[in-house]
């Protein structure tokens, strides 16, 4: 097994998802099969090979430090599930 049910639950927590108990086994099986498959990458020796983070090798894309108009409070909040006092409202955050 590449991944256990406990691992799956841990990853779900990191991703802010929940897995229903009745789905856990099937999901773990699917994830295990996929992780088992991708293991084939280890057949390749990649010693000294550079990791590729971008499809096109480029560097330095900048913008000038120039103001652009904001979209406005109304636009900013138009899709908010809950809003009030010009802010997005969320369940109380306890630090």
């Amino acid at each position: 097994m590449k991944i256990s049910q406990k691992d799956v639950e841990h990853v779900a927590r990191l991703a802010r998802l929940t897995v229903a108990p009745e789905e856990l086994e099937a999901l773990t099986g699917q994830m295990d099969a996929i992780l088992g498959y991708v293991d084939k990458l280890n057949e390749l020796d990649t010693e000294g090979i550079e990791a590729m983070a971008h499809a096109v090798p480029m560097s330095n894309a900048f913008r000038e430090d120039e103001l652009k108009p904001a979209i406005g409070i109304e636009r900013a909040l138009q899709n908010a599930p809950v809003a009030g006092d010009e802010c997005f409202t969320v369940p109380k955050v306890i630090e």
Binding site: D65, E66, L67, K68, A70, I73, A76, E86, C87, F88
Partner: peptide, 20 residues
């Protein structure tokens, strides 16, 4: 004058969400 990844102002003390 502007944010690190967009052209919005970083002026302090403006109305909430007005600089977005």
């Amino acid at each position: 004058k502007t944010k690190i990844f967009c052209g919005c102002s970083i002026e302090f003390g403006q109305s909430p969400n007005s600089q977005t």
